[in-house]
């Protein structure tokens, strides 16, 4: 096969792929996080056309991150951490019933990130999450035990050790429930996966 014929074949296959994707209404679901303060920043979820990047849907939620604004302050050793470092992130998983030690329930798992333009500390264990247990329940007392890290009981819960936190407070559906619904409707991916450049923090 000549070089010209090869190019034609490759182009045809590529075009067919795009057409197939377009027919399926191919979209991509992304986030951005605008850092404004530890307790009051904005997390936005987008549904974008995969071909031209145009925004089809967009929903913004109040979110928090960190205890201070130093993106190089890790909470690994002292529970005091700064907000999430700026830059692009890969998204490496989403679970409805995550069973971590301090973080449970509906979470999105982010890549590690070295702070301060790549000169400072490597921040690890980064998620988008709220305060609920692995069964998506609020452990706020009553018939269930009170566990502070699994009970959203006020705006101070927007503080985090570096992750992005979103409210699971009433009224129903909560911000977390609506965000999760957006994700389920637009992406639907669950479990471990590898999605490059799905979160931008600034």
């Amino acid at each position: 096969m000549s070089a010209r014929a090869r190019i034609v074949v490759v182009a045809a296959v590529t075009a067919a792929s795009f057409l197939a994707a377009g027919r399926a209404g191919a979209t991509v679901t992304t986030f951005d996080f605008h850092r404004m303060s530890n307790l009051n920043s904005v997390l936005t979820i987008y549904r974008q056309d995969i071909l031209d990047g145009s925004i089809l849907n967009r929903v913004a939620y109040r979110a928090g991150s960190g205890l201070n604004t130093n993106e190089c302050d890790s909470a690994q050793y002292d529970s005091v951490g700064g907000w999430l470092p700026a830059g692009y992130y890969s998204l490496w998983g989403h679970w409805n019933n995550y069973t971590g030690d301090k973080i449970q329930g509906r979470v999105w798992y982010l890549q590690d990130k070295r702070c301060n333009g790549g000169t400072g500390q490597i921040r690890t264990d980064l998620f988008i999450h709220s305060e609920e247990d692995m069964y998506n329940r609020q452990l706020c007392g009553g018939s269930l035990p009170y566990v502070e890290r699994f009970c959203w009981d006020g705006d101070r819960d927007y503080y985090s050790v570096g992750c992005i936190k979103i409210s699971v407070a009433a009224p129903s559906p909560s911000d977390l429930a609506r965000l999760h619904s957006n994700w389920d409707n637009w992406s639907g991916l669950h479990g471990s996966f590898v999605l490059a450049q799905r979160l931008y923090v600034y």
């Binding site: 830059g87 692009y88 992130y89 890969s90 490496w92 890549q111 590690d112 990130k113 070295r114 333009g117 790549g118 590898v194 999605l195 490059a196 450049q197 799905r198």
Partner: peptide, 15 residues
């Protein structure tokens, strides 16, 4: 080599 301004996935970095 890691460019920390970019996503890992854009640099072929896997878990």
């Amino acid at each position: 080599a890691v460019d920390w301004s970019k996503a890992f996935g854009d640099q072929g970095i896997a878990i």
